[in-house]
Write a protein that binds this DNA or RNA. Structure first.
Lengths: 262, 262
DNA sequence: GAGTGGTCTAGACCACTGT
DNA sequence: CAGTGGTCTAGACCACTCC
């Protein structure tokens, strides 16, 4: 290879893939690598940065550079939607026991810390187009965070948009102190007579924005999954748009598509 | 901010988000930015690297640094699976007209260039576990690339694994020169009497490996979507595992979940 | 040829961590 | 305290692109 930082990165990459360097292992210090490869420290740092950008290593200031471990996956399945719909007609006491996050993760409510914030905002940009309302229409913006009780980073950054006029019949739906609502958004919509017909989820991936990296505690060299969930009522209206940002290295989205039998 | 490259990155980021720098605009040269901010060129380069890692800018050697434009999205929907199943019993002539990629993208077969390579390999690692066969069992590994006729990068990197013993009844299925098979994998399985019951798709995101970045022509500062598709036959067996690597910045996965009516 | 970003040197000093 | 990575300087020369 013409470029010497690529040669250094290549040798280390090969060692990691071959298992000569195992997850959790510490790499030699930058000064030592520089000496060993006969290059300057900045050149070695360039090589390490390339490996970090591939998600292979992780640097810890003042400690060293380590081969990255696989993260435990949090799973989110689309079966949750039917499950939530079924629950939304059940008694409150039964709904209160567990929510969709518990359904997906297998955890109980005691393991989880929940947080919600409501704001009323005018519809703008693509949200108004998706919801089919005019620009400036009154929306309810709901931000959610759920995290494991023993960790500081949430599972994801969730923002949901509802049309205020559709739900104002039930004032409790405008009150964030009523969260967590037993049974989730489908139960809330049910309380104002809205039944869902289907849910669309659009998924893309990109590097995190700095604010997202901070809140999700993402190390450099990771990606986020960006999911937009669109809920359609039985009358065809879009009744909810939810944007979710999830850490790509510790989230697995599972979609099951049943097929009609012959 | 304590760190001056962060201050430089912050000012440029704000300018981009506010629209003072628009997609496609060229940023000042590194030497000019260095002078303007009163820092050295390497410090400016550090700031630009941070913005590139966020996907905000794109550097072109010998030309300059530009605000990145949004990419045109290629969409892939899970409705394709039922569509493919319906087609797999239709006459060959009808199946030959369009495939799933055409279904998703709205393009015609003339717009697309298709490529396939078959290999027989022993089952290893997680693939044998998912397919439910012993390690070392004979598998057919099929690699696919589809690209737009006017572009050089494929839509994605597709590798499918079939159990050789399940499909050997039809020797055509072992022959890569028979590709593209009219109607796709479900038609191939149908030719040996296999009907699918459901499809599971698992989605995660991560930075690309160097080989993936090269083949998909991904600039630094992008992510890939990693999709594993698992096909279940009506008898409960896993009959196909397909791994797909897609460019995160120009792919949208669309999943529709229908809900039972009350 | 002029201008751009890419690679590299050989240091300096700072900030963080564990002992 | 010693050792680590983080930031920064002030250059040098190379590779690429456009004119």
């Amino acid at each position: 290879m013409a470029v010497s930082y690529e040669r250094i990165a290549g040798e280390l990459r090969t060692a990691i893939r071959a298992g000569r360097l195992r997850p959790g292992d510490r790499l030699p210090a930058e000064t030592e690598l520089a000496e060993r490869f006969g290059r300057s420290v900045p050149t070695v740092r360039e090589a390490l940065r390339a490996l970090r950008d591939e998600g292979l290593i992780e640097k810890r200031h003042g400690i060293g550079t380590f081969v990255r471990r696989e993260r435990a996956l949090a799973r989110r399945t689309n079966l949750r939607h039917q499950w939530e719909k079924d629950r939304s007609r059940r008694p409150v006491a039964q709904r209160a026991m567990t929510g969709a996050t518990e359904h997906d993760t297998g955890l109980t409510a005691n393991d989880l810390v929940f947080w919600a914030r409501y704001r009323e905002i005018p519809a703008g940009g693509d949200i108004s187009a998706v919801l089919g309302v005019r620009e400036g229409a009154a929306l309810l913006e709901r931000s959610y965070r759920t995290r494991h009780a023993t960790e500081s980073a949430p599972f994801g950054l969730v923002t949901s948009y509802l049309v205020r006029g559709m739900i104002a019949r039930n004032p409790d739906l405008l009150d964030e102190t009523k969260e967590p609502w037993p049974g989730g958004t489908q139960s809330q919509l049910h309380s104002v007579g809205i039944e869902l017909d289907r849910i669309e989820e659009r998924v893309t991936a990109r590097p995190p924005m700095p604010e997202e990296a901070e809140e999700l505690e993402l190390p450099p060299g990771t990606s986020v999954l960006v999911l937009r969930k669109i809920s359609y009522a039985t009358d065809g209206r879009v009744v909810d748009v939810t944007d979710v940002v999830l850490p790509g290295d510790r989230t697995e989205l599972l979609f099951t598509t049943p097929l009609e039998r012959w």
